[in-house]
Amino acid sequence: MAIEVRIPTILRQHTDGQKAVEAKGDTLAELFADLETRHAGIQARIVDGGELRRFVNVYLNDEDVRFLDGISTKVADGDNVTILPAVAGGMA
């Protein structure tokens, strides 16, 4: 068993176009490091300076991980993780 990670369109250039990939790890940080070993470049699109990028949303089983433990959130086999860039902007 592994953890399914759903990849947004903008990051599928790192996954050969795949919408979902599998990864392993005990925390999100480990999961993203594991993803990086097979999908070079993806980690830096999600993580910056050891934290989740402000405008990238990560959900664990549909819950925004900012309301859990952020990048230290624990994950387990059978969980699913969804990555979605924020839709944001404005004149500021």
């Binding site: 947004p8 949303n57 959900y59 925004d64 900012r66 979605l84 924020a86 839709v87 404005g90 500021a92």
Partner: peptide, 23 residues
């Protein structure tokens, strides 16, 4: 139409749960 979670005259951001539901 989406809710502007920032409720701001100079910024917008889709609410994160609404964003997940939308996608």
């Amino acid at each position: 139409p989406m809710l502007n979670a920032a409720r701001s005259p100079t910024f917008y951001e889709f609410d994160s749960q609404d964003l997940l539901k939308l996608y």
